[in-house]
Write a protein that binds this DNA or RNA. Structure first.
Length: 358
DNA sequence: TTAGGGTTAG
């Protein structure tokens, strides 16, 4: 590509190199060896990496779980033992850009995702000591990691202090907190927060209610979940694909499979198209109801439409249903059909089949 | 839109 740019008499810029780095690092396959070539090319052009280059690398390190390398980059203590660290070395030599709030938020997010409160706190403290002003994007992963470590009161206090710190909370940070509360079994508190967040000027949206709905089902509060849906419909709050999937999964996982099909009907009436998760929940519900023939027909219809491609989860549920309703011989026949179509079983599929034998 | 945060399934 760079040769083509030069053919037109143009010189690649740092911005173009950054785009290339971001693209290489965004791929699932490890492309660190190519990054070296990109760097050499940059140097050959007399271009210096900038703060964007630095943060693109940090993002990739965090995304790949190379938090130690990312931290070494942060404190300027790169070694040379791993490929990531080698890249850090290069960065340390070439780029003396001070870290900005984006870099810190990337790191805090990396630690939060791993549930590492100590790592996230160290980065946070470093940021504060370096007099970098945090904003809501850095606060959000801190709330997340506090919740993951069952420090719900501290998470709430952090949000509450944001206003005094001149950084008002937004809907995203409340969604993060509500999710943390629900995962911690504190669904009543989560409901209270949904009411309370409006005092901070944040209006609960569909994503907020989806989290709450998921939480209500997780503590078997079916009635409250139904009341919530009814209330949202009355208030004309948009119910999206995730809302319906959450609702259907909530019913199917608590033995109320007939209700799943009613919700599916409402979903179609409201013009919301199903996705792979919807298909899985429906197949699971039909299988649990013993309506295996209907499940097979449903799956065939979906496959014929070519809009959706049922995955191994849907097929595993169906196999499990066939085992229970039609017997293991029929399940083996279906398994062979799957294999012929190039759909290969995983450990959960075999687990279901083995149980069918017992 | 050159870099940073949030949702559902066996």
């Amino acid at each position: 590509m760079f040769y083509r740019i030069k053919e037109f008499g143009c010189k690649p810029t740092v911005r173009i190199y950054n785009h290339l780095l971001d693209a290489l690092l965004g791929e699932s396959e490890n492309r660190y060896h190519m990054i070296d070539a990109v760097y050499e090319n940059m140097n050959g052009e007399g271009l210096e990496p900038n703060v964007f280059t630095y943060n693109i690398l940090l993002k990739a390190l965090c995304k790949n779980g190379k938090l130690n390398a990312a931290c070494k980059l942060l404190v300027g203590l790169c070694g040379n033992v791993a490929e990531a660290v080698a890249v850090c070395d290069r960065m340390e030599k070439d780029c003396f850009c001070p870290l900005n709030v984006t870099a810190y938020s990337t790191l805090v997010h990396g630690f939060a995702k791993a549930g590492d409160l100590q790592g996230a706190s160290e980065v946070w403290n470093r940021m504060v000591n370096c007099e970098v002003q945090p904003h809501v994007v850095v606060y959000t992963p801190m709330v997340d990691v506090l919740c993951k470590n069952s420090m719900l009161d501290q998470a709430y206090r952090l949000i509450d202090n944001m206003v005094a710190d001149g950084c008002p909370p937004n809907v995203v940070i409340f969604i993060t907190f509500i999710k943390g509360l629900c995962h911690g079994g504190r669904v009543r508190w989560a409901m209270h927060v949904v009411d309370q967040m409006q005092r901070y000027g944040c209006l609960p949206d569909t994503r907020t209610y989806n989290e709450l709905l998921d939480g209500l089902f997780s503590v078997n509060e079916f009635r409250k979940a139904c009341e919530l849906i009814r209330e949202l419909e009355e208030r004309k709050v948009e119910l999206n694909l995730v809302t319906y999937n959450t609702f259907m999964y909530g019913f199917s996982s608590h033995g109320k499979e007939e209700w799943v099909l009613q919700v599916l009907g409402r979903m179609f009436v409201n013009g919301v198209k199903p996705d792979a998760i919807t298909v899985n929940v429906i197949i699971y519900a039909y299988s649990k109801l013993g309506k295996v023939r209907t499940a097979i027909q449903f799956l065939e219809r979906i496959t014929a439409g070519k809009e959706l491609c049922p995955d191994i989860i849907a097929h595993t549920s169906l196999l499990w249903g066939i085992c229970n309703s039609l017997g293991i011989e029929e399940a083996i026949v279906y398994l062979n059909k799957m294999l012929n179509k190039g759909i290969f079983p995983n450990i959960a599929t075999w687990d279901g089949l083995v149980r069918g034998f017992c």
